[in-house]
């Protein structure tokens, strides 16, 4: 190989190596930073995987949240829900999020944050009901979860702070009455979250009176389960239709179960007549 050609190839290889090194460091960092499953997003956010692609990190949502028409003012201070992730915040860098215990989402009727988004990372498509009506009540920012051990209502104390703070009053959080068998004379008034109505605004978490909140908002993906099509509700004809989608494969196959059971059991056995 002539000298010129060789040196050209070596220089190119150097450039590729430098790019690969820099690129893989960035890639490793991005892979680590982009999956922060506990991040609570503004209303109308795409599913997290698409959101992280689509958000341009311009901060227009946070700006719209700060300069909204009727901001909540507490002790002379304007309550701003949305923050933009900075390094060290444990959220994907540069993207909008909120911490309900600090400042919950006040669920503005005009949804200024969602409507400010230029990319479609926040979109009315993700904030509507089955009939296609867009309203803040159909936001799915997260879902409230109660820790019954630290919720004082489960001890028999009168509280209902979360119930009264909830903007979806008597829908997303309802109070259920039960007899207090410990004292025998009193009632429990226990808050129960109905996830179909919960928007994840976090007013409950913000209002919770315990030192560390006994009701917390988590992203829906993190908390909600999925039974699949194999299980349907009994005595419910509509729900029972779902079983048609279920796979008909009912046995579990493993490497072992593929073999003939006799051979499997007799492995390594020496027969006398052999």
């Amino acid at each position: 190989m002539d000298k010129k050609r060789r040196s050209f190839l070596v220089v190119m290889a150097q450039a590729v190596a430098a790019s690969a090194m820099g690129g893989s460091i960035v890639a490793a960092f991005v892979e680590e930073n982009k999956d922060k499953p506990l991040t609570l997003r503004p209303p109308g956010a795409l599913p997290e995987k698409d959101f992280i692609k689509t958000c341009i990190r311009c901060g227009l949502c946070a700006e719209a949240c700060k300069n909204r028409d009727n901001p909540m003012i507490i002790d002379g201070e304007k309550m701003v829900t949305l923050k933009m992730g900075a390094p060290g915040d444990s959220v994907p860098i540069g993207t909008p999020y909120f911490i309900p215990r600090d400042v919950p989402c006040y669920m503005c009727d005009d949804i200024p944050c969602m409507n400010a988004c230029p990319t479609g990372a926040l979109t009315p498509d993700m904030c509507k009901n089955d009939e296609g009506k867009v309203a803040i009540d159909y936001a799915k920012m997260g879902v409230a979860v109660i820790d019954p051990k630290s919720c004082i209502a489960y001890w028999g104390l009168q509280c209902t702070a979360c119930y009264r703070a909830c903007p979806e009053l008597d829908k997303a959080i309802r109070i259920e009455w039960k007899q207090n068998e410990r004292t025998g004379k009193h009632a429990y008034r226990i808050p129960v979250v109905y996830e179909d109505y919960c928007t994840g605004c976090g007013m409950c978490e913000h209002a919770c009176v315990t030192e560390k909140p006994a009701i917390k908002v988590f992203p829906r993906d993190v908390f909600l389960g999925k039974p699949g099509d194999r299980y349907v509700k009994g005595w419910d004809t509509k729900d029972q239709q779902r079983i048609k989608n279920a796979s008909t494969k009912t046995t579990t196959e493993t490497g072992r179960s593929k073999e003939n059971p006799i051979e499997e059991l007799n492995q390594g056995v020496k027969w006398n007549d052999e």
Partner: peptide, 24 residues
């Protein structure tokens, strides 16, 4: 990685968002 990779480390973004929100 399926995301705008440089925007996770872009110092321009850090600077301006730092001024407007927080720089962390």
């Amino acid at each position: 990685v399926g995301a705008a990779a440089y925007e996770f480390v872009n110092p321009i973004g850090f600077f301006v968002r730092g001024l407007l929100f927080s720089i962390g």
